[in-house]
Amino acid sequence: MLVKRKETIRSEKAEVAVPVRPMNGGNGLYSYSKNSTFQRKAIEAAKELINKAIAEELDIKTLSSSNTFKIADLGCSVGTNTLLAVQNIINAVEHKFHSQGKHTKLPEFQVFFNDQASNDFNQLFTSLPSEMQYFAAGVPGSFHRRLFPNNSLHFVHSSCAAQWLSRVPEAVQDKSSPAWNKGRVHYSNSTAEVIKAFEAQFAKDMDNFLKIRAQEIVHGGLMALILPGRLNGTPHTDAYINKAFELVESSLIDMAKKGIVRVEEVDSFNIPIYYASLQEVEAAVNRNGSFSIEIMENIPHEKPQPKVMSITLRAGLEGTIKEHFGDEILDELFDILLRNKLEESSLIAESCKSVGLFVLLKHKPNE
């Protein structure tokens, strides 16, 4: 029997069950470290915006008297993407100090790499450069809960991670609910009730995420969020990344028709992910009130070729799918996805929009 593992996280009000769903670890054929170019492109696209934010918005004088600059990368996963993001931030902070004539007073840097406890931290740590400019530490746990002491972080970064929800919305798993997502595993091409349930879950999670980060980040500190998403006003079905997930859904439905997986297994499976627009993120920031929006832009996100997209999806979804269906179906599922879905649908996907969201927030000073 396949035992579903869950990690329980605590908030001030309630307990939330969070499925353990790390990206594929190791350095093998389907590992995240070898198949995350799509995510790396987002970090590269945001580099100049982060440089601009640090140059213009980082107030060195108010941040720390300890001469230690603390950075956290939330949802760091494995491989070198997180190392690239961290190095970009450190380079920009050093440039900020140099521009103010502080050549002899550069801070020491402490970097916290965060992800689920079952993330392959060993693979991550073996990727660390031999000569680091910072002190590194791993912080296991969901970013949907508190991870750091009050007022301890100067810069928080999170890329291609905050689209993962803390849980599947309860309504879409309730057979008596109008939002029951029967016969589907994704929300974008489902009913209006299902879409509203996922929208509401994202809003709830983002509200909690911002509340927690407001406790952890020093006043005047910065937070950069990079999210695969969709343009304001764009229907969910017109977002390229959602189209890819719809094809995963279609592949599972085909397998159910062939008896490879049970129909009931498909009915009870939903991918806990949501792709937002800038308007939705802005609304959450405004509700929270602890941060000012310094930069908010759509950034380009290229569309991978079908084979690359298939392996990218496998590197990111394999753990979640295996947890529900078992690992016996994985090869056939992603073979169907590549042969019968992605290649045939490439022309349709070309008409869809592929964008990333970049949001740079500043923790408002004490009033």
Rank of each mutant, 00 (worst) to 15 (best):
L2Q: 14
V3I: 14
K4R: 11
K4P: 00
I9N: 03
Y30G: 06
Y32V: 03
Q39D: 08
Q39I: 06
K41I: 11
I43Q: 05
A55Y: 05
E57Y: 14
S66Q: 14
C76K: 00
S77Q: 03
S77E: 01
V78D: 00
T80H: 12
N88M: 13
F97E: 04
H98T: 12
H98F: 14
Q110D: 08
Q110G: 09
D115S: 03
Q116C: 08
L128I: 08
P129W: 08
F135L: 07
V139C: 14
G141M: 06
G141W: 02
S142Q: 02
F143I: 10
H144I: 01
H144P: 02
N151G: 08
S159V: 04
C160M: 11
A162E: 10
Q163K: 13
L165R: 03
R167K: 15
V172G: 08
P178M: 09
N181P: 04
G183F: 07
R184A: 12
A192L: 14
A192N: 13
A197Q: 02
F198V: 08
A203E: 12
K204S: 15
F209E: 01
I212V: 05
E216S: 01
V218R: 03
V218C: 02
G220S: 06
M223E: 02
M223I: 05
A224T: 04
L227G: 00
R230H: 01
T234Y: 09
A239V: 05
A244W: 02
E246A: 07
K258R: 15
I271D: 00
Y274P: 09
Y274R: 07
S277Y: 07
A283P: 02
I295W: 06
M296S: 11
M296V: 07
K303T: 08
I311L: 06
I311S: 03
L313D: 03
R314L: 07
R314S: 04
I321H: 00
G326Q: 00
E332M: 05
L337G: 00
N340C: 14
S346C: 12
L347I: 05
I348R: 10
V355N: 01
K364H: 11
P365H: 12
